[in-house]
């Protein structure tokens, strides 16, 4: 419980850093820290496979690409261009939404499953269990997501290629 409390504090600080830090690279780094802490939370729940995948996919691949783009475009600290009124509206909406979520969570009659039950259900976090759910119960959804990602990729390539395909464009 103490471990979770410490991790939760680190997670929240990291998440706040993503939003509040002005320098894009610092914000991205804060996100990396948050994702790695989330992996540690998975480890404390004995979900080892999930933790490893979290680090490999989010920490190792997606965030490296994020940072790559940030550095390639050489993004600098963003001058606040938004109008003051908008900012106040954004603050109010944000605070109200956060309060609503917190109240909803606190008023929910369902008990959070305790860590023992969770680690029991995960059975040591073996990949087999996740594979059974993913490739059995949710097979159709899994394949549809695959098609969706493929569509997005083909679309992105098509957008980039359009220029080069017209004769004489090079």
């Amino acid at each position: 419980m103490i471990t979770f409390a410490v991790l939760a504090v680190v997670l929240v600080i990291g998440a706040l850093g993503v939003v509040l830090l002005r320098q894009p690279v610092h914000a991205a780094l804060s996100l990396v820290g948050t994702l790695l802490t989330l992996a540690v939370v998975f480890v404390t729940l004995e979900a080892h496979f999930l933790a490893a995948i979290q680090v490999i996919v989010y920490g190792g691949a997606i965030m490296v690409l994020f940072l790559f783009v940030i550095m390639l475009l050489n993004l600098q600290e963003e001058a606040t261009k938004t109008r003051a009124a908008y900012r106040w509206i954004a603050y109010v909406v944000g605070v109200v939404a956060a309060a609503a979520i917190a109240t909803g969570a606190l008023l929910d009659p369902r008990q959070a499953p305790d860590a023992l039950a969770v680690s029991d259900a995960l059975r040591g976090g073996s990949p087999e269990l996740i594979a059974q759910v993913l490739f059995g119960e949710f097979m159709l959804a899994f394949q549809l997501v695959g098609v969706l990602l493929l569509t997005a990729m083909v679309g992105a390539v098509a957008l980039v290629q359009r220029q080069a395909e017209t004769p004489g464009a090079r």
Partner: peptide, 15 residues
């Protein structure tokens, strides 16, 4: 149990 993934994960953070 996921030793192989552990090595891949940790080295991918090293970058």
């Amino acid at each position: 149990d996921i030793g192989l993934l552990y090595v891949l994960a940790v080295t991918s953070i090293g970058v």
